[in-house]
Design a protein around this nucleic acid. Structure first.
Lengths: 158, 158
DNA sequence: CTGTAAATGAAAATGATTTTCATTAAGAGA
DNA sequence: TCTCTTAATGAAAATCATTTTCATTTACAG
């Protein structure tokens, strides 16, 4: 993962990029644009496909590279749902309005975002985070919570 | 993932295998044996290496296949710490004595198992699990909690 | 406007995991 | 115990997401 110092300050991304010594390019804008508009969990190729019609000269390689930068900056979460490819979602921050956790079907890989119990969870997590951070001298920046099981359809199929 | 029906009953693995229609083979025993003895997070190749001296005729392919079966049976957890290969650990069950969660360094990929806050976490998770299960009609069988950040060393390096 | 280092695309390389296929062996039933 | 069916296996090849290489382009500081 690419990281230049610790660049997690606030401010919108024009500044965020520049502030961290990154250059602002068309490809990066395109990718951020798609990511901030799309709901859901996009793979690198998904993003490439969505961008391609409008920006045919942004390659898949650049998508990967940009996603790496973005997740290094904390602007994007890189997720793994066990289907062999990484998924990315725009980060709104763990306290942000749309923060959610995932419910993953181990059979069909369907993913449901839920926010229902987030408040209690986040409260507990913050505590835990603090405790862990102290005990293990970790600078915790993020967390991942996923529940696994069978979705309605798949558990029907037995 | 290979699954034959829902085979998550109790009992030790000789029976568990047979009960689910799987055959008990040398390779599978070897893999279970290593997994149950080793602490930590082994990759398929780690396991292959550990087994090889004693069972030189168990191939890497079989290791992958067996791990797939085992994780289908819920006897092994398949984990992803972001270093490009899957890691496996013997499952003691979410309520088992050694259940733990993970603290992952995003820089060097070091992983710390912690059990410190498990009790509170597990309690909340059980509630959440129940609520989510009902609302989304999911049969939840497992959960994953990981905190990400920089370990002491890596945050030292700035 | 210019120089320099960062960013890029295309193609090749990588590397974990999966598939193929011919062979072996587990274990149910005789 | 012997036989037969089918699951399990190893080796090699295939797959496929991601990374690297390298020559070229481009952002942007000065």
């Amino acid at each position: 993962m690419l990281t230049r110092g610790t660049c997690r300050g606030e401010g919108w991304w024009h500044g965020k990029f520049r502030g961290c010594g990154y250059r602002l390019t068309l490809g990066r804008e395109a990718i951020l644009d798609i990511l901030s508009k799309s709901e859901g969990h996009l793979s690198a190729e998904d993003i490439y496909m969505k961008i391609h019609p409008k920006y045919p000269n942004v390659g898949l390689t650049t998508v990967y590279r940009t996603l790496d930068v973005l997740s290094g900056l904390g602007m994007v979460y890189k997720l793994d749902f066990g289907d062999g490819r990484s998924r990315y979602e725009f980060a709104e921050g763990p306290k942000g309005a749309h923060h959610h956790h995932h419910l993953v079907c181990t059979q069909c890989n369907k993913v449901i975002d839920y926010t229902d119990f987030i408040d209690d969870e986040v409260e507990l997590l913050n505590q835990t985070e603090k405790g862990l951070g102290q005990k293990y001298k970790f600078k915790i920046t993020n967390h991942l919570i996923q529940f696994y099981g069978l979705c309605e359809e798949c558990s029907g199929k037995k």
